[in-house]
Nucleic acid binder design. Structure first.
Lengths: 142, 142
DNA sequence: TACGCAAACGATAACGATTATCAATTGTTT
DNA sequence: AAACAATTGATAATCGTTATCGTTTGCGTA
């Protein structure tokens, strides 16, 4: 069994960052939250509400650092603000309910390879791609 | 041959909007620009530079109205601001060069139908979807 | 274990994109 | 042409995010 605390320290270290309280708090929150996607404001609000000391600027800074070091993935849906989720290595796309905001993840190897083909056909060197399907989830359909 | 001016008037009328100078100027610009995607600021700047009177607030308002009435499509890439293009009815996706900003469009029926399948499998009722491939275009590769 | 210093923090100012406000102007309908 | 609601545009306000900068802290070293 892996010591979670240790692994968090290591992740931060491997990112070339000092292990500080704010960073530990933020990473722990992301790992323990049931919500997959968290915005900076949400991370800040949740930590403040649980009486963890943190500054909003730090939250933004740390989330960006975590993103750059591959700990987190940033998503820009059509909401006007970024949301973050742990990057567990497995690429996936999203189904987003525009009524209740629910997010589901999916991965379709066929779509992936077709995208790659398209990219090649246009002489593009793919670095990343994002596919989001907007609609109504089961519980939001009339 | 269709009278372009007339068709612009009609488009605006059909959207349930009064035919005003700012609306005509904006629609005409979108139709005549070689650039497919224009941001609100760009539309404003271009009109001001060509000595057309317009206010920035009006540009934002009109672009949103045009989007809501189906005249325009809004895209939110990872740039931090929206861009707009004429909605010619044919859905397409985008290849975006993260170096020079170039945008290419593509349409792949196979990907479309696979997306639909995924959506069904998750009991989602698809309303819209966006697929963007980020990478380096031919001229930006080393 | 204490020291020193770069790295990191956090309060707050600044920023860029967008929206709200509201008095003045303009399209359309009569 | 009058009437009146819709529209405009200058500007203030808002929102998410980034920059500033004096203070604090992690951590390698003595």
């Amino acid at each position: 069994m892996i010591d979670k605390t240790l692994s968090e320290r290591e992740q931060i270290r491997e990112a070339g960052l000092k292990v500080t309280h704010p960073r530990m708090r933020i990473l722990r929150l992301l790992e323990e939250s049931e919500q997959i996607h968290l915005s900076a404001e949400e991370v800040y609000r949740i930590l403040i509400e649980t009486n963890e000391e943190i500054g909003l600027a730090t939250v933004y800074r740390v989330l960006t650092q975590f993103e750059q070091s591959g700990i987190l993935k940033r998503h820009n849906f059509e909401t006007g603000h970024s949301v973050f989720e742990l990057d567990r290595g497995e690429h996936h796309d999203h189904l987003l309910c525009i009524k209740c905001g629910a997010v589901e993840e999916f991965h379709d190897e066929q779509i992936e390879s077709l995208q790659y083909k398209v990219s090649e056909a246009h002489n593009f060197k793919t670095i990343d791609h994002s596919l989001t399907i907007y609609g109504h989830c089961k519980s939001c359909q009339v």
